[in-house]
């Protein structure tokens, strides 16, 4: 545990050490949604590895000196705002705000609203999200601002896969491709689940790669629950910056990853664990950084 606590954002970390941080992030997620008996554990657990990697290793950012404009640093936009528990955990754990504030998640007068917002002034959040399909457009705007300012840092943005059913995404995808916005690295949380069931059954796209390619994006694929693959793929993604096309990572994840009884089903999209289920979940997740 001591070696993990020494890991600082943006310092070289091994996949193993990042995996241990992700274990703590997963503990935060299930404890947060259990405490208020509301929130979205499934997608949060699925994205825990990637967001941990982004905030503790991949992004060049300034957790202790948050600025809304994010000039001369990498920025991240969470389009699928319902996975706020994982977002809040990595923000707090990487230093944007006090870790014990995770206690206030979804409670009255909290900066940690059910879905992320700038409205309460929470450091690390640059845009409200929750109503789906808007984050890619915001990322395009941030990418244009960086280009205009000759800032060579990257705009990261994550969307859900079901979320791509929202038409605004394709407006943004078309714009970014047409203009070759090669400072965007998007990720699609490709867990193939949405509230009412499987994405493929509801309104599926089994050709997501070709759809992005048709709009002149460079497409990478990775296992979003394999830390080494996350790190390797992001080295490739970064190398594609400045090559004339926006980049998207189709990130295969397991909804509920890390908690066996939550995995592989849409049913844990928005349901909190009860006391017994919390105990079962925590038993599978080593406490590596200390609970909040």
């Amino acid at each position: 545990m001591s070696s993990v606590t020494e890991i600082q954002p943006n310092k070289m970390s091994t996949a193993n050490e990042l995996t241990q941080i992700a274990s703590q992030v997963r503990r935060d997620i299930v404890r947060m949604v259990h405490a208020v008996q509301s929130g979205h554990p499934g997608g949060s657990l699925g994205c825990a590895d990637y967001l941990t990697a982004l905030y503790f290793h991949i992004m060049d950012h300034h957790p202790n000196a948050f600025s809304m404009a994010g000039k001369n640093e990498d920025v991240f936009v969470l389009s699928n705002g319902h996975i706020s528990p994982v977002f809040y955990s990595v923000l707090a754990r990487s230093g944007y705000f006090p870790i014990n504030e995770l206690n206030t998640f979804r409670k009255l007068n909290s900066r940690l609203q059910g879905h992320p917002t700038t409205h309460e002034g929470l450091p690390g959040v640059r845009i409200a999200s929750g109503s789906l399909g808007q984050g890619l457009s915001v990322a395009v705007g941030l990418a244009l601002a960086k280009k205009a300012d000759n800032d060579t840092h990257i705009v990261y943005v994550n969307t859900g896969d079901g979320e791509l059913q929202e038409g605004q995404n394709w407006e943004a995808i078309m714009y970014a491709g047409h203009h070759g916005l090669d400072n965007i690295i998007a990720s699609v949380d490709y867990n193939k689940q949405q509230i009412d069931g499987g994405v493929v059954e509801i309104m599926g796209f089994d050709t997501l790669r070709s759809k992005f390619e048709a709009f002149k994006w460079t497409v990478l694929e990775m296992d979003g629950n394999n830390m080494q693959d996350i790190l390797d793929t992001n080295i490739k993604a970064k190398a594609l910056q400045g090559k004339g096309q926006p980049i998207v990572i189709l990130m295969k994840t397991e909804m509920g990853a890390g908690v066996d009884f939550m995995m592989g089903s849409h049913e844990w999209h928005g349901i909190p664990p009860n006391d017994d289920q919390l105990a079962k979940a925590l038993a599978q997740l080593p406490e590596t950084l200390g609970d909040y």
Binding site: K71, R126, I127, L144, A145, K146, Q168
Partner: peptide, 17 residues
């Protein structure tokens, strides 16, 4: 593509424009 325009404007404003 007006929906995208509003989101892009929000992003540009976030970036200081």
């Amino acid at each position: 593509a007006e929906a995208n325009m509003m989101g892009v404007a929000a992003g540009l404003a976030t970036g200081g424009k």
